[in-house]
């Protein structure tokens, strides 16, 4: 199946997840629930770039990682979120998040074709850091379920967006463009990391 069809296939069932969230809300509304959760990965450039990079790198690596990475990431994100929800302090997760942007961007820029287990491991470690950040906020959301649906869905859709961008590889000049984008992401990640370390 082509990547474009994969994107369409992933989006169609995902639409079932958001069929009627507005109609489903009662009481005080979705603020603090689905909308907050959905906005969380989108509102932080570090989260956003890292998620897109997971999809983009997966698309670049091809089968099976184009499908495996968007599955590994949410699973390990849950592990990190559970640690965050339990209030267990993990130092330097913020640095881990910034590092993820730099490393994933660098992998794309360098066209790094890692073995499946290495690519999955890299993504898994970073997913724990990202999940931890979400998990710290989850229990206090007015609607934790809506919040979790929101940020998992937003994360998944960002992966799909990255895969869709990765489909540009097949076009003329696509690979250099993707590698350039990866380089830009890595550079931005470096700036983030420097800021986090200097703080």
């Amino acid at each position: 199946m082509t990547r474009a069809r994969f994107v369409a296939r992933a989006l169609a069932p995902a639409m079932g997840l958001v069929a009627v969230p507005a109609a489903a809300h009662t009481g005080t509304g979705l603020a603090g629930g689905f909308v907050s959760g959905f906005a969380h990965p989108l509102s932080g450039p570090d989260h956003l770039l890292a998620m897109v990079s997971v999809g983009l790198w997966g698309a670049f690596l091809g089968r099976p990682l184009v499908y495996a990475l968007p599955v590994v990431f949410p699973m390990m994100m849950v592990a990190g979120a559970v640690v965050g929800m339990a209030g267990i302090a993990i130092p330097s997760t913020e640095i881990g998040i910034k590092l993820s942007v730099m490393v994933l961007g660098g992998c794309i820029a360098l066209a790094l074709r890692a073995p499946v287990w290495i690519a999955a491991s890299i993504v898994a470690v970073f997913a724990i850091c990202h999940g931890y950040a979400h998990g710290r906020e989850l229990p206090s959301a007015a609607d934790p379920m809506g919040y979790s649906v929101g940020f998992v869905l937003a994360t998944g859709l960002l992966h799909v967006a990255g895969i869709a961008l990765g489909s540009l590889e097949a076009r003329r000049g696509g690979t250099p463009a993707i590698r350039l984008a990866g380089g830009a992401i890595a550079a931005i990640g470096g700036v983030f990391l420097l800021g986090a370390v200097m703080r």
């Binding site: 603090g32 909308v35 906005a39 959301a141």
Partner: peptide, 20 residues
Amino acid sequence: MLVRFALTTFALVGATAALA
């Protein structure tokens, strides 16, 4: 980071104002 915190806090404020 600031935008994410602000958005989340705003959303939580909107939701939790009734909870204090």
